[in-house]
Amino acid sequence: MASLTCPRHPDAHLVEDHRAGDIICPECGVVVGDRLVDVGTEWRSFSNERSGTDPSRVGAPENPILGTGDLSTSIMVGFGASESSQGLANAQRKNTNNTERQLNQALGIIRDMSERIHLTRPIQDSAAKVFKQILDSKALRGRSNEAQAAACLYFACRKEGVPRTFKEICAVSRVSKRDIGKCFKLILKTLETSIEQITSADFMSRFCGNLNLHVSVQAAATRIAKKAVELDLVAGRSPISIAAAAIYMASQASTEKRSAKEIGEIAGAAEQTVRQTYKLLLPRVRELFPQEFKFDTPIEQLPSS
């Protein structure tokens, strides 16, 4: 944390957003760092107790997801047991080993993907719990372990209020967006749950931070996107496309201009998609900007596409 500073406000005291896993400058809203590490101890110290043993040194804690401490019944067979009993015991051992192996593999995949896109530990744990539920239900039998793990991670991000795009999850996995999407729909159906719809506002802070845009540009882009939806200008467009187009419009009107290509690369949207969505906003552009916005480029001189 001490080595991180805002390029615009080097003396600013940075703020930690533990939910999103970001380190933010409170002066301009720029995301300075995108991964937090918990430096606190993971165990209590019992140094004042009289016992000569140190209770804090007991090894790794039991992982409740793996279920190694459960009270399930194991089938044991002794000498002279019938063939049916032996077969039942063998089948149980095989099934248990396969389940544990599949679960361990998935937890490793979730951890690896999370680290590559800087997701916090609570999100990893949430994804792991969802995978365990899905594995026990056998609802996704036949789907690849990686597709299931990726879908669980996407679900956990949505559930925790820090959504990532399908393209971002695809970028750190070896499965297609189509496969992840199918698994995600099955997860919703199996868990009999629903999650809040994502909006362009969910991505605005991260996209603008990665583009190094001032908080005033972010505020304008957020307002543009929200107003565009209210006016029904972007029907059928994804929240990501709307967010990208709004950022493009706000930046072009400010001193911190960013191209549609730059924004598309950050948002995971095609440059042409950003431009097409932007063109849908132009006819009502005067209604979209907040009144207090300070224009560097007048509305009349904004790009036509």
Rank of each mutant, 00 (worst) to 15 (best):
A201W: 10
I169R: 02
L135P: 00
L119Y: 06
M76W: 12
V58D: 12
N104T: 11
A250F: 12
S251M: 09
P26Y: 03
R8A: 13
Q252L: 12
S74H: 13
L103M: 12
S205W: 11
S45E: 07
S200N: 11
D112Q: 11
I299G: 03
N98Y: 13
L103F: 05
C157D: 04
R141M: 09
S126N: 08
C208R: 06
Q92I: 07
Q124Y: 07
I117L: 11
F166Q: 08
G209F: 07
I224W: 11
S126P: 03
C25G: 12
L4S: 15
L231D: 00
T53C: 05
I263W: 03
A244Y: 01
V274K: 00
S205H: 15
G21V: 02
L36W: 06
Q102W: 07
T96Y: 13
F155I: 02
A128R: 08
I110P: 04
S173T: 12
K177N: 09
S205L: 15
W43T: 13
D179K: 07
S238I: 07
G87T: 03
C170F: 10
I123K: 04
V130H: 01
T41Y: 13
L107D: 09
P61R: 05
I299H: 04
T99P: 00
A89F: 01
G87L: 06
A245G: 04
A225F: 02
I242E: 02
I75Q: 04
A147K: 01
L281H: 00
C170V: 12
S200F: 11
A221Q: 02
D179Q: 09
V15I: 14
V217A: 11
A20L: 11
A171M: 06
R237T: 01
M204N: 04
S137L: 04
L103I: 06
T199D: 08
E160P: 02
D70S: 14
S200A: 15
G21F: 05
N98T: 15
C152R: 00
W43D: 13
D179F: 00
N98I: 15
L231A: 04
T99D: 05
A243C: 00
E168G: 08
S51M: 09
W43Q: 14
L281C: 01
N210Q: 15
E16G: 11
A156P: 08
D22F: 15
D22W: 15
T96C: 08
K257N: 10
N95P: 00
G181M: 05
E300S: 14
A201Y: 10
V58Y: 07
A149D: 05
S45H: 03
Q272D: 01
M113H: 01
L302E: 09
D125K: 11
A171P: 00
L213C: 01
I110V: 14
I198D: 07
E196T: 14
P283N: 02
K129N: 13
R93Y: 11
Y248A: 06
E115C: 12
Q197F: 10
S254Y: 12
M113D: 05
P122D: 07
T120P: 05
G69D: 13
E292R: 12
A139I: 09
Q291T: 12
S72F: 10
V285Y: 04
C183S: 09
A81Q: 00
H214A: 15
K261H: 08
I247F: 05
H18W: 14
F79N: 10
G59Y: 02
P239F: 00
K132Q: 01
D296R: 15
